[in-house]
Amino acid sequence: MVKVFDCPKSLTDMPTHYCPGCTHGIIHRLIAEVIDELGIADKTVGVAPVGCAVLAYNYFVCDMQEAAHGRAPAVATGIKRVVPDGVVFTYQGDGDLASIGCAEIVHAAARGELITTVFVNNGIYGMTGGQMAPTTLPGDKTSTSPYGRDTKKQGFPIRVSEMLATLDGPAYIARVSVHNVANIVKAKRAIKKAFEYQIAGKGFTLVEVLSTCPTNWGLTPKESLEKVQRDMMPYFPLGDYKDIEAGEKK
């Protein structure tokens, strides 16, 4: 018998703390699979955010740094400038990246920092108990938009991929999802391309991954995947928003 599918070597064997059905776990595995396939575990440095993935440094076998909330792109800039032949990625949630760290991600992208950001967008602050995030959908109830997000008072969700794709520093910006197996395969392809572009020195790369939060959405893991497709994808369309190799989409 031949192993067709197994745990990637770049993941440690520590069980994650994520809630049952939370797709953080899938995204971690995809990154680890890419690191394995590119054979770069020994020269990769990951930057974990503050958020549900704050303990990500326990789950990857490579060197890691823990950044202050929102500052992972800056920390990653510092690391990459010191270790230019290393591979540097940040793993960030929507509060971390699109709220407190919005300046950091915009400027890291504008500078064309040779880092890869995996941006997990589940439209909520998970770790702190379900508050509204910059990507919370209009009308969605959270612990700080208990009547449903009212765009007149709490504004509109930010489409990060489209926003960053207007900049010249990025080489590859894509939004993907992991709400079903077909999309998981596509998501991995996008993450792999992002890492490859970094290694080739093409520019800043970011993959936005639509993700779930069963606990704070108050849904079962199954219903959460359905919500991604039904509610999130219309507002956050999937696709490659910038690819300097293939020319820009849209």
Binding site: V45, V47, Q65, A67, A68, R71, A74, V75, A76, T77, G78, I79, R81, V82, V83, A103, E104, V106, H107, R111
Partner: peptide
């Protein structure tokens, strides 16, 4: 060497954090 003008002092100190964490004199 490398000079980066950060987007803010908040970013600058976190770049220092990353670079120092990678072992550089920063």
């Amino acid at each position: 060497g490398t000079f980066v003008q950060a987007e803010s002092e908040v970013s600058a100190i976190n770049m220092v954090y990353g670079a120092a964490g990678a072992g550089a004199r920063v």
